[in-house]
Design a protein around this nucleic acid. Structure first.
Lengths: 196, 196
DNA sequence: GCATTTACATACCGATCGGTACAAAACGAA
DNA sequence: TTCGTTTTGTACCGATCGGTATGTAAATGC
């Protein structure tokens, strides 16, 4: 049997990038095959139809993004500097290199929330997994004494996640950097101490 | 001359709703004309091409949404209850009636941020206008003594806006209501007092 | 060397996309 | 009524959409 002439992982990476840049609808088979450097029959034989390809690309994205977020959070031992790093890195382009790239999971929620509930659920799962990462980091901060013992780790994690999502959306256009900086700084105060 | 047989405002409302539900790409001329109850030549004669129609629909949306937000904020005299009302109303469906509808301006940022910078800028302007509304309401709360004089109204307004955006995105899928409730409650603590 | 199997590239499919040409129909002005 | 103007409905346009049929080239087992 003849072996395939392209690397499947590499092609999937290219597809992920196209979907990331354009979204599901606007990513045409023409552009996908060009950027993946394969022809349509190879694509369909290897990945199935466009929707299945997207599903795999999204899964790949969420895995990589979760790993990226986890790594950034672990770069700093202290909790607040860690989140400061995450938010600032995201505002500076994050794992994609361009602040206006945004997040594929967020785009999926937004673009396909109504038409493709399964894909939206997959994207939502990713966000909830990020929230769980956040929670663990916050709990670590509480345990070490850095953060107040009154802090609700679960709720704070959710609020920070929601802010991160909102931030990535705004970064799709070019908001004043003062706005972004202030929003980040204020979001971080969520971790500073518990008020009622 | 023959008068037009449809109401322009009413047709534009229908178009706005279609774009709101589907986004720019997925809103086909077929569905648009059906829901607007006009034929394509009438659409093109009245509104120009699809992009111009979208621009007018987006403008209409942002005006209405800003008015809605302002009204909700003014429903409560106190600042914190006012924002609590806004966030909870949004989580319950907001002006569109369905939590999963989301926000057309957010969707525009996300879907068209790269391909249509002008439309994205229009959507971003809307968000910044909301932030200005928030700021005024916060300043009022500071003036009345409800909120701490240490609070940075501008920065807090931005952070609340970012949270609102993130919230509407998450609501596109069906997140656990406990998650949403907690995120809202935690976001509100941003206004409770200034910490550094 | 040969048969088999798999992947490849080309060329094509019906459907739908956004957008228009055209002629009938409906009004206001005369 | 008749003319002139504008809107309307139908029917159509080329382009592109996602997806495939087909024939050929390439690699392996025998």
């Amino acid at each position: 049997m003849r072996p395939r002439a392209f690397d499947e992982e590499q092609a999937l990476d290219a597809a992920m990038r196209v979907f990331w840049e354009k979204g599901y609808e606007a990513a045409s088979l023409t552009e996908l095959t060009q950027r993946m450097d394969i022809r349509k029959p190879s694509l369909y034989a290897t990945f199935g139809d466009k929707r299945e390809l997207f599903e795999r690309a999204l899964k790949r994205y969420t895995e990589r993004h979760a790993a990226y977020v986890e790594q950034v959070l672990e770069r700093e031992d202290q909790t607040i500097p860690a989140f400061a790093g995450l938010l600032r890195d995201t505002a500076a382009g994050g794992s994609g290199g361009d602040p206006a790239l945004g997040c594929l999971a967020v785009l999926t929620l937004d673009e396909l929330g109504a038409a493709e509930p399964d894909l939206a659920a997959q994207a939502l799962d990713h966000q909830l997994r990020l929230a769980a990462l956040f929670r663990r980091k916050i709990e670590k901060g509480i345990g070490s004494g850095e953060l107040s013992r009154e802090l609700d780790a679960e709720a704070s994690a959710g609020a920070v996640l929601v802010s991160l999502i909102g931030l990535t959306v705004m970064l799709k256009a070019k908001p004043p950097s003062a706005f972004i900086d202030a929003a980040i700084a204020t979001t971080l105060t969520l971790l500073k101490e518990e008020k009622r």
